[in-house]
């Protein structure tokens, strides 16, 4: 019977676990967008951008710092600031064990890493969010590190940049997380008064209280391609308006179209583009402009 060629006559997987052929873990990466397979090495050589479709894989501070700081040399600041569960918040899991688990899984202390170093020989303070730490959620540590990063930039007269990647405020810190929005905005007014540039670089995803505070307050706001950027999450909006959302809604290109981004930058030219922009802000341009004519 030909039909048995196509039908599974015996149910289930019959290969015993012992005989299973193991693929070494972490050697290959499948693109979530185009499903093409690349080796991890190829991917990291390509700055975690899919060589086939250009999809920007989500990366964290360690990778961004490697991309941006010259020779991957930078000093990490404020490593002594640690999160704590002051409210003893318990949902399906106590917040303090959530913190411990996240710290073990990521080898990070919280969702924000601040580094100072040279980007094409220009010193800069970069605060970068880590999405792998409780969804990059903004709690007290994130706010405090931004606050101190700004103080550091003012003290050393350096440009300041934040790379956002976050689902929004960290509910387990309740109103304290909400107030980080006001806190960071308040500190940014000081940076502005000091005449120092603030670059907001939004990556996938940037939503909620993070977007509604420091992410949207850059002297220039830029983003990676195809990043989800919004206030409310798409699911909430869909439930509220009871309609399907248009293609590309809340993506970087949509925000650019509606006037909320200065430009979109591909990760592969990120460093050079950022350096150009920072130079525009910091260049000493006193005196007359030299003419090209003799």
């Amino acid at each position: 019977m030909s039909s048995t060629w196509f039908r599974r006559s015996k149910q289930g997987i019959l290969t015993s676990t012992k005989e299973k052929k193991e693929t070494p873990d972490g050697l290959w990466h499948k693109c979530p967008e185009c499903k093409a397979t690349n080796t991890k090495q190829e991917l990291s050589d390509n700055l975690y951008v899919c060589p086939h479709c250009g999809y920007h894989n989500r990366i964290n501070a360690v990778e961004y710092f490697e991309i941006l700081f010259d020779n991957n040399e930078y000093e990490e600041l404020f490593t002594n600031i640690m999160p704590k569960d002051m409210l003893h918040f318990v949902d399906m899991k106590p917040y303090d064990s959530r913190l411990v688990d996240a710290q073990k899984a990521t080898n990070l202390t919280d969702a924000m890493t601040v580094g100072v170093g040279n980007m094409n020989s220009q010193p800069i303070v970069i605060a970068c969010m880590n999405f792998n730490f409780i969804g990059g959620s903004m709690g007290s540590v994130v706010g405090e590190k931004i606050s101190r990063g700004i103080d550091y930039a003012i003290e050393h007269k350096l440009p300041f940049m934040i790379i956002t990647k976050s689902g929004g405020a960290r509910m387990m810190e309740s109103a304290f997380s909400l107030m980080q929005m006001a806190k960071t905005a308040a500190k940014l007014t000081r940076l502005a008064k000091a005449g120092l540039p603030y670059i907001s670089f939004m990556t996938d995803p940037t939503t909620g209280g993070v977007t509604a505070s420091y992410a949207m307050l850059g002297d220039i706001n830029i983003a990676e391609p195809n990043a989800l950027i919004g206030f409310a999450g798409p699911r909430v909006i869909k439930e509220t308006i009871k309609k399907d959302l248009p293609d590309g809604f809340q993506k970087s290109e949509f925000l650019l179209e509606h006037g909320f981004l200065d430009f979109i930058v591909n990760r592969k030219v990120l460093k050079i583009k950022l350096s150009q922009v920072v130079q525009w802000f910091v260049k000493d341009a006193a005196g007359a402009i030299a003419s090209d004519l003799n």
Partner: peptide, 15 residues
Amino acid sequence: PGLEAEERGQAEAIA
């Protein structure tokens, strides 16, 4: 949390 609210920059307005 509406479609037009996002188009017109709810997050930017609050920030």
